[in-house]
Design a protein around this nucleic acid. Structure first.
Length: 277
DNA sequence: CTGTTCTCCTGTGGGC
DNA sequence: TGCCCACAGGAGAACA
């Protein structure tokens, strides 16, 4: 699933359910996710509670309140989080891999059919974890700006879409929002990154921030409705301008159907009129 | 260093 | 209906 807005929304939705709630049990039904789940996960978490919550790229970082230990949680491509209240009957579904049981009986269930998700523990600053050390800037932070993106595009030989999806440049821009942001900025996804002007870099930075913020906002509202129904958090309906709209009329120019091309083995969607090369 | 391709895994939807 | 293939929102590993 999850691109940055979904991860942000899931994390925010999780906080009121688990903050400062004592962890009574951690049930691992399948340890072989993207990487093996730490063998000592249960023994290191039980009796503690999560007190600090942070997102870095598409990782959720859950810090223990009274111990220097952080759970590093990635939802992969198909990960979902289910919140089950203490009174709610629940029988395990296929792909319910890890269950956190809290004081009083509430449960948080990590459900991930494709098992590209992961759980790690670190007793250092999470930024020093090997998975996080080489990450670029956060797209919503002030240091992701026109000057920065211009500089990182100027000396690159790849196409624009690949550049903004490169986690060493900026994190959290996945396949959906890469297409959406380039459309908003009216930039062709296949253009060479080094042809980007400073002005265009500014437009693209603004488009990335706008599209991510809009999705976070819509995810936040979906979460309230959706959580009431099923307790699941993960996938939300967004209104996409180009993503997965091949052949449909562009909503901006009303003249051309949206095109699909493949870049680095992944689908890209754009309007050939609005996004000239 | 850079950039590309391969890989993990399961589910789903379209075409025949 | 059933079968097969392409493809799916990520990203590290391996390689040129």
């Amino acid at each position: 699933m999850p691109e940055l807005p979904e991860v942000e929304t899931v994390l925010r939705g999780l906080i009121p359910h688990i903050q400062d709630q004592t962890i009574e049990d951690v049930i691992i039904r399948r340890p072989d996710l993207r990487w093996p789940i730490p063998l000592d996960l249960r023994e290191r978490l039980v009796g503690h509670s999560f007190g600090h919550f942070q997102r870095r790229a598409k990782y959720m970082l859950l810090g223990l309140r009274h111990a220097p230990l952080t759970l590093i949680w990635h939802l992969g491509m198909s990960g979902r989080v289910k919140v089950v209240s203490a009174t709610e009957p629940y029988s395990y579904a296929p792909h319910d891999h890890v269950i956190f049981v809290f004081e009083g009986g509430a449960r948080i269930i990590f459900h991930d059919p494709r098992r590209f998700g992961s759980l790690h523990l670190t007793d250092q600053s999470p930024d020093e974890h090997p998975l996080l050390t080489h990450l670029g800037v956060e797209p919503l932070a002030a240091d992701f700006n026109a000057d920065y993106l211009y500089a990182l595009c100027a000396r690159s030989s790849v196409d624009l879409k690949s550049r903004i999806m490169d986690q060493r440049v900026v994190v959290g821009v996945g396949n959906i929002y890469a297409s959406e942001a380039l459309f908003r900025a009216r930039l062709h996804p296949a253009r060479s990154a080094h042809t980007l002007t400073l002005e265009e870099a500014g437009l693209l930075v603004g488009a990335i921030k706008d599209v991510l913020l809009a999705a976070i906002h819509s995810g936040g509202s979906s979460l309230r409705d959706h959580a009431q129904v099923s307790g699941e958090m993960g996938y939300f309906q967004h209104q996409f301008a180009v993503y997965d709209r091949e052949g449909l009329l562009c909503g901006h120019c009303q003249a051309m159907p949206i095109c699909r091309i493949v870049q680095k083995g992944r689908s890209t969607f754009y309007c050939p009129t609005c996004q000239e090369v």
